[in-house]
Design a protein around this nucleic acid. Structure first.
Length: 466
RNA sequence: GGUCCCUUCGUCUAUCGGUUAGGACAGCUGGUUUUCAUCCUGCAAAGGGGGGUUCGAUUCCCCCAGGGACCGCCA
């Protein structure tokens, strides 16, 4: 068997959809697993809706999640001549014919079929009428002479054998009356010319495959293998569409989901390898196969994405996590100032402990990032007369310490607890509010240490709490 | 309506005729803790229904029900 070649073929009519990302991922993994190649084809023949910016965005999105394609992207619109040539060849060989029905005529037939509740299928009117009887004033479309008798079997690598009656496939149009090729023709010709060995795509293309296979056969081309993967559904159980919120990659990256986590989640959505949940990129390449793909559609589950992301936040190298945080903030929040970097980086170990997303880490780090403490009235109430006294005493005592660490700070706090006949909460709570503006947050010593002596003094001197 | 596909805990899934039907996420308990978390215990939770085949079916076959996809001179 020749070297495996797969492709992802989105149309650049919008941001990349998460279902598309998964399809791309499966194709990419399959080719990598077989040491083959993965290609990107941009299906931009819908001139109305295709935009170059979407093409750029799609490539960027794929790259974000770790998928890169081989060579230049294959731009479908530049290959239209090839598609037309194939249509003409099919015409010449009697595998296709000109159809002079007007769109009005077709519409009328469809309407009638609907009224009678009969399935509509083009009546093959011009399949056998000689060219000489063609009307002069109508520009014809070219239709493929689809099989009428018997059945066809698609040997699908995921779905198994799928059999349909040939008469349910109509004589589909391959060339419009303006001379432009339609999807089934273009896709087939491109896949052939690109030398694709495996077509892995969404289940929604399954019926198209029966049309496309007939073109391969009519042209005497080698058939690729097909694998139709089940679609991703919304929580309501419908096909995921661009209208559903949180369906584009951007939706996830902007809340601080990391690419590796999403990649891992998507990998496990509809695919499994025993009980394994966490796959490094290398593992996923090594272990991916088509057998592991389930046949039923799966629902997108945000809480799982979040917990996967949380897992990655907790386990990846802290330097890498920091880099991700920096670029996340730069893109979606405020750029972290370099003097703050020194404080945030060593604090990641506790900042990340309560975070499911990069955005959570950012929020946790706000007390460091913001120069001014943002108080809310509710928490400020905790700073009563007694609390102010404690804060002042703490401030004075902490002045005498040279090095801030738990061992040096703890005795001070303990002393205050004792002298004011309170508990840790009685001391910790007001201090936490004074330093961060909130009673929720990291451990008190973590806060003090990360802020450092100068900043702690400054904040405890703030007039709002004195 | 026609064609095709699907059906195991709420969710993602394991099981390739014999299991107390396993894991993960979410949920709920209990514990640790310095708030919020983390972490650690534990609990609860599933084979759509009906027929076969078989000594034995979640697993194989059929029917039904439910869900989904497709049915463009879009891709």
């Amino acid at each position: 068997m020749s070297k495996v070649a797969t492709r992802f073929a989105p149309s650049p009519t919008g941001a990349l959809h998460i279902g598309g990302v998964r399809t791309a991922l499966f194709n990419w993994l399959y080719s990598k697993n077989h040491k083959g190649t993965f290609h990107l084809r941009i299906e931009d023949t819908d001139k109305e809706r295709s935009k170059d910016e979407y093409k750029v965005q799609i490539i960027k999105s794929l790259k974000w999640i770790g998928i890169e394609h081989e060579g230049e992207e294959y731009i479908q619109s530049t290959k239209i001549n090839d598609h037309v040539n194939v249509a003409n060849e099919l015409l010449k060989n009697g595998k296709a014919y000109k159809c002079y029905c007007s769109s009005d005529e077709i519409e009328e037939q469809k309407k009638r079929a609907r009224q009678k509740k009969l399935p509509y299928i083009y009546n093959r009117k011009w399949r056998d009428i000689p060219e000489t009887e063609a009307p002069k004033d109508i520009k014809p479309v070219i239709r493929f002479k689809s099989k009428i008798e018997g059945t066809s079997i698609l040997k699908d690598l995921v779905q198994g054998d799928v059999e349909i009656d040939n008469n349910t496939i109509e004589d589909f149009i391959i060339l419009r009356n303006d001379g432009s090729p339609t999807y089934n023709l273009s896709a087939t010709v491109d896949d052939h010319q690109m030398g694709m060995t495996h077509i892995i795509r969404g289940d929604d293309h399954k019926i198209n495959t029966f049309k496309q296979i007939q073109i391969y056969l009519a042209m005497n081309w080698d058939l690729p293998a097909f694998a139709h993967i089940p679609l991703i559904h919304t929580i309501e159980g419908k096909k995921l569409s661009k209208r559903d919120n949180a369906s584009t990659l951007e939706d996830y990256s902007k809340i601080g989901i990391m690419p590796d986590a999403l990649r891992n989640y998507l990998l496990r959505l509809g695919w499994s390898y025993e009980d394994k949940e966490i796959f490094t990129l290398e593992e996923s390449i090594k272990l991916f196969n088509l057998d592991g793909i389930g046949k039923s559609p799966s629902k997108l589950d945000m809480s799982r994405i979040l917990s996967m992301n949380e897992h990655y936040i907790k386990t990846i190298d802290e330097n890498e996590l920091y880099q991700q945080l920096v670029s996340y903030c730069e893109k979606y929040k405020d750029k972290i100032k370099s003097e703050k970097e020194l404080k945030i980086k060593p604090s990641l170990s506790f900042l990340k402990n309560k975070a499911k997303t990069l955005e959570d880490i950012y929020n946790n780090a706000k007390f460091i990032i913001n120069d001014e403490v943002q108080f809310n009235d509710e928490d400020l109430k905790l700073i009563d007369k007694k609390a102010k006294l404690i804060i002042t005493e703490f401030k004075n005592k902490v002045l005498t310490i040279d090095e801030f660490k738990k061992e040096t700070l703890e005795p001070i706090v303990n002393e205050l607890i004792k002298s004011h006949e309170t508990n840790f909460k009685g001391v910790g709570q007001p201090l936490r509010v004074a330093l961060t503006g909130s009673k929720f947050g990291p451990g008190l010593y973590d806060i003090i240490i990360s802020l450092g002596k100068v900043e702690v003094q400054k904040r405890l001197n703030s007039e709002i709490i004195i």
